[in-house]
């Protein structure tokens, strides 16, 4: 049995402890906002927060998160995620949408640490999140917009 907290709720999973967190979240907990894109930490679609830090769930066996707090896109709260989602909606960032949960998790993590990120900060923080539709122009813009909202 592997115990950890997901979106504030304790879970206790009786599955192979090597199971990637990604598949545990999806297959066992039906939290489908976290997406599978590559399985090798190259695309970022599976990004979740692990004890408050972004983490690629596809390369995270559940044995590694025993006792930890996992937050998925469904469980995110706070001013940064709200600002990011509003900014995403205001300029229609998503196209196909598959990568966007991961993009939003990384963008939120960036804004939690850097209030007013430069273009270079954005390039560095978002380098691990692939968007095949190449919505990058709008991702960049929306992060800047969210930062302005948070400044008030």
């Amino acid at each position: 049995m592997t115990k950890f907290i997901v979106n504030g709720r304790e879970v206790d999973l009786d599955i192979d402890p090597d199971t990637p967190l990604l598949w545990a979240l999806r297959d066992e907990l039906r939290l489908t906002g976290t997406k599978f894109g590559c399985g090798i930490a190259q695309c970022g679609a599976c990004t979740v927060m692990l004890d408050g830090m972004p983490r690629r769930s596809c390369v995270t066996p559940i044995s590694m998160v025993e006792g930890s707090e996992v937050t998925t896109i469904e469980g995110m709260e706070g001013p940064e995620i709200a600002a990011v989602q509003s900014a995403w909606e205001a300029i229609d960032v998503p196209q196909c949408g598959w990568c966007q949960s991961g993009q939003i998790m990384s963008a939120t993590a960036l804004l939690q640490q850097v209030a007013s990120p430069s273009d270079e900060d954005i390039n560095n923080a978002m380098a691990g999140n692939v968007c095949r539709c190449a919505t990058y122009v709008r991702i960049r813009q929306a992060i800047h917009d969210a930062a302005k909202t948070l400044e008030g």
Binding site: D18, A41, M53, M64, S106, L110, Q113, V114, D121, A125
Partner: peptide, 18 residues
Amino acid sequence: APGMTCNTCHGPQNVALT
């Protein structure tokens, strides 16, 4: 970098790809 640190991908041990 903030938003993508080493531990975004690298955990406490090697992890075989699935």
